[in-house]
Amino acid sequence: MSTEKIKDARRMVHWPGHMETDYIYTLGIAGEKFFTEMKNSGRIFAAKCKRCGFIYLPPRIYCERCFEKLTEWINVGTKGEVFTYTVAYVDVDSSKLKEPTIYAYIKFDGAHGGLIHKLGEVKHEDVQIGMPVEAVFKPLAERKANINDIKYFKPV
């Protein structure tokens, strides 16, 4: 086997490859409804399984537990609580972020589950698990039917 310790892969005899491909991802039936409601009316919907009672957020068109088709959509409001969070100091390449970013799993009342998103209008040292937060939406004209139509969640 090779034994040399090599820090930079470019020092080895190599061929530089590239695998970039672009994609158009449809949001799906459930995703299109969810993000269209968010974009048009700033409302967050979950989908309820009539058979087992599980309320899915993010919503789906089927229950992954019993395979019932989900047709009942529930407005779960825009408030939740911080279930867990992290303060990211580095980007994907380990380079320092200019400002640390707080990411949280926000659990919604009235649903099983919630959304992962950023926290804003709060210092990271003041964030606590269990803290109530609410969604802050972009202005209507700037929304594009994606998860970033929510700018972040802020403390209530």
Binding site: Y23, Y25, L27, G28, G31, F35, P58, F83, T84, Y85, T86, A88, V90, D91, V92, D93, Y103, A104, Y105, L115, I116, H117, K118, I129, N146, I147, N148
Partner: peptide, 29 residues
């Protein structure tokens, strides 16, 4: 960089998800 494309393309990747902060959420909980 390869890890960033394993996550959900609708709900997670537009947030700039990285492997480490996803784990950090679980570790903290």
């Amino acid at each position: 960089y390869a890890f960033t494309t394993i996550f959900d393309q609708i709900y997670s990747r537009p947030l700039g998800v990285t492997l480490i902060w996803i784990f950090a959420l679980e570790m903290h909980r």
